[in-house]
């Protein structure tokens, strides 16, 4: 028997190359507007206290931007929301700088560099910014990170019967690590998931594990984005939501284990 997990999407946030927010991304994913890959511009996180704002790295600011868009769209307060964070790596530039310093004659990395190096740095800053004291999962599954985050968030909604916000973000490494892990730009997606349908519900999703092939984009530029940045493996789900019709999409997850998602507009 195939287990299917059901949740309702109440808010979406997105920021990435050529994708500035959910309303404009929706028009691109439905084909109303062409996709043009422009460098991601991350806004200053006004919600953070001044000291934390100065110290925040790109992955923190990116995650704050997408999550706040999703939470505002859902008409919720972040403070009581359980959270799932999923990143295919921590902040790339910060990791590079630490490795460079540790290979030098002066290994005295700064305290800020060090605490920004933990994989859950964005989760820590996020909870400080929003005052959220609820539980958080901070995950990594390399290229499967979006799927892993979505699956964990779905189990949170189904088992705990609570809302949950999924925040999946990726940032690039500079050279020389870029040559080993070629993520071209910043991209983040945030989804607010709920256990029941509410007035603000956008779509119902039913997630199960499958071995079917993953959905690809017909648009070459979108398909190359889907492949280039791990979190973009979630874009076919967003396209199905944008199209406002009943669709079944398959997202890449681990090897030949994938996620089948039945999407119904609400």
């Amino acid at each position: 028997m195939t287990i299917q997990l059901t949740a309702y999407i109440e808010g979406i946030g997105i920021l990435g190359p050529g994708l500035t927010n959910w309303p404009s991304t929706l028009e691109i994913l439905t084909g109303e507007q062409p996709y043009l890959s422009l460098k991601t511009v991350i806004p200053t996180p006004e919600l953070l206290p001044a000291a934390e704002r100065r110290r925040a790295s790109d992955i923190v600011k990116l995650t704050l931007a997408t999550s706040l868009e999703a939470i505002a769209a859902a008409g919720l307060e972040a403070a009581s929301l359980p959270s799932v964070f999923s990143f295919s790596n921590g902040d790339g530039l910060n990791c590079h700088t630490i490795c460079e310093m540790l290979a030098s004659d002066d290994r005295q990395i700064s305290p800020t560099r060090f605490h920004n190096s933990v994989h859950n740095a964005a989760a820590g800053y996020w909870s400080i910014a929003t005052g959220a004291m609820a539980s958080s999962s901070v995950l990594c599954a390399f290229d499967a990170s979006f799927g892993a985050g979505l699956l964990d968030a779905m189990t949170q909604v189904v088992v705990e019967g609570s809302r949950c916000i999924l925040m999946a973000s990726d940032t690039p490494y500079p050279e020389p690590m870029f040559s080993l892990r070629s993520i071209p730009d910043n991209l983040g997606i945030a989804l607010v998931l709920a256990p029941q349908q509410n007035p603000q519900t956008i779509a119902q999703i039913k997630v199960s594990i499958t071995h079917d092939d993953a959905c690809k984009f017909q648009d070459a530029a979108l398909e190359s984005l889907r492949i280039a940045i791990p979190v973009a493996r979630g874009l076919p789900l967003l396209q199905a939501i944008a199209q406002q019709k009943n669709r079944r999409v398959v997202l890449d997850y681990l090897d030949n284990t994938r996620l089948a998602i039945e999407v119904s507009p609400c």
Partner: peptide, 27 residues
Amino acid sequence: PAVVVSSACSSSAKVFSVARRMIEAGL
């Protein structure tokens, strides 16, 4: 299903939470 939990020094306590939800959800 598989994942790493990386939340600094709580990481391998929180894995029990992820696993428990996966088992209870029937996956």
